[in-house]
Design a protein around this nucleic acid. Structure first.
Lengths: 143, 143
DNA sequence: GTTATAAATAGAAATCATTTCTATTTATAT
DNA sequence: ATATAAATAGAAATGATTTCTATTTATAAC
């Protein structure tokens, strides 16, 4: 937690109860979370936060590199904690429990140079979405 | 065009002027297109089509494998023509002109088995989004 | 500790992409 | 030619996200 608060300070954000509460949620949950879901979880912990505030806080945390946006097929907004912002990585998402795990391995350079040659293009960004069953859900499913 | 009309028939869709017009647009444009943009393009060609119809037609064409949904960071709906539905492939998207090109090369199995071992997970799907400048825009940009 | 300040927040309201609904029209099988 | 289910238009609803404004609060400077 301290680590993330320091990052917020670096970005000149104040340490407010709502920001801390949202951060705590993400530290506790390994899943990706959506704005409304977050509102409800905070309510259960007796903290009333308006949706606009939640949207704003999520944006700020993303802008600080603390959260990553999950490109979900539903095209709704989801975020998950980015535990290693320094290292470029991809995400493995469990389709059953929505857990997000970071994958540091990436062999993209090969495909990138293939594209640059084949299409005579310039590759700038890439993102890889990997979905499946995490170790826990995999076991549950087979039983 | 005939090829795509045949696919529609296979899926028991009627060949209507609007479906044909939408298909024609995608055959002509190499870019990804959004619903409202499509409506305007059809209007220019003197064909009035309601937005709900466009949304429905796009879904049908996607369901038939003729179009692919583009997962855009804006989280709006975009589609592009899928010229080779038989062959699994990824898409290279030009960030300047929005052109979509199919890339058949994929070295995903390596990263997939890495994940399965490292996370003890079961990988089910993956999708790779690759963005950059296509051959034409690359040249324009450097001038 | 106080206080001044800009930043953060709540809540109402607006926005706008997308979806639903229903009456009418149309492609096509016969 | 006609019967039929499918397709369409247009109005209306939905619902996630954003904007706006008045109020509150964290914190830097004293």
């Amino acid at each position: 937690m301290e680590k993330y608060l320091a990052v917020l300070k670096e970005h000149h954000f104040k340490i407010t109860p709502r920001r801390k509460a949202v951060l705590e949620l993400f530290l506790r949950e390994k899943r990706y979370l959506g704005p409304y879901e977050i509102k409800q979880m905070l309510e259960k912990a007796s903290l009333e936060v308006g949706l606009p505030s939640i949207y704003r806080i999520l944006e700020e945390l993303e802008g600080s590199g603390i959260l990553v946006k999950i490109e979900h097929s539903s095209r709704r907004l989801y975020y998950s904690l980015c535990r290693n912002p320094q290292v470029s990585h991809h995400h493995f998402i469990c389709s059953k429990c929505n857990k997000v795990e970071e994958v540091e391995f990436c062999n993209f350079s090969e495909i990138s140079s293939f594209i640059e040659k084949k299409l005579n293009a310039r590759v700038q960004h890439h993102s890889l979405h990997i979905e499946g069953l995490c170790s826990e859900c995999r076991v549950e499913n087979s039983s």
